[in-house]
Design a protein around this nucleic acid. Structure first.
Lengths: 129, 129
DNA sequence: CTCGACCTTCCCCTATACTGGAAGGTCAAG
DNA sequence: CTTGACCTTCCAGTATAGGGGAAGGTCGAG
């Protein structure tokens, strides 16, 4: 299949496929005599792998690393597990920080709501914020 | 205090402070007669707020919006309160999305961990990801 | 034979959040 | 008086993940 079809099958654009090829996530595509890239089912599987990795929050660099291991004939499973552990820890950290920030903003709102309307003088900086 | 000292106090670089000023996250700094910016404790508090927001995954645009509420001298307080509500909702949304992503990654890890090593066939893309 | 939908390469642009470095001014210490 | 550590502005580059659009080649349908 040609690039547009493969891209659609993987839920991406042709532009993205060329970008992935340039970025080393895809091998250089086979070309027909007219120079068109063509892809097979395996290519689409690889693209879906990339898409799922992105959806899981992996960077293209991380995905490239996994694919490189696979292409070298080495089972990436241990490496994938390590990457997932790292990703989980990062997410936990991020969620904790965001939750703390939410508390801060909620406190601001609580203070703002508790202010008597009379203190809301447009000429003043709303100091409770 | 001068820019380097304020930056160090907030765990940033002087470059970043100038960038934040240009980006509208900091008001134009007061200058000494020699043109040096100078800052006070309040400035550092603001910088720390920004840093916490960044650590929590907020964009500078989001932080700028929250800070604009702090600075909203002319805004009617009801409007300020509305904006705080919007910010809170945005934070809740962001926390929900991160939490969903975390579940997704945790599920991937669980599947990966449960895979018998024998199924990690180099000829296959790790199908559990 | 032309039309439209594809495809190609090429280069530049987007947004985010800085970072580096050049060229020059300021200031306290030795 | 010079040195070095600051500070100033301005211009340019980095990394990420693509997107826009030009200029041109290819192909099946009408």
């Amino acid at each position: 299949m040609r690039i547009g079809e493969a891209a659609a099958a993987a839920g991406m654009t042709a532009k993205t496929l060329r970008f992935y090829e340039d970025s080393g996530l895809l091998p250089e595509a086979n070309r027909s005599s007219n120079g068109y890239r063509h892809y097979n089912h395996e290519s689409v599987t690889r693209l879906e792998f990339i898409r799922r990795g992105r959806a899981a929050g992996l960077t293209l660099a991380q995905i490239r690393e996994i694919l490189a291991l696979r292409d070298a004939g080495e089972a990436p499973c241990t490496h994938v597990q390590e990457l997932l552990e790292v990703q989980l820890a990062a997410l936990d950290q991020q969620i904790a920080e965001l939750t703390a920030l939410r508390s801060s903003v909620a406190a601001l709102r609580a203070t703002a709501t508790a202010q008597p309307p009379a203190s809301c003088d447009p000429a003043r900086i709303c100091s409770y914020l």
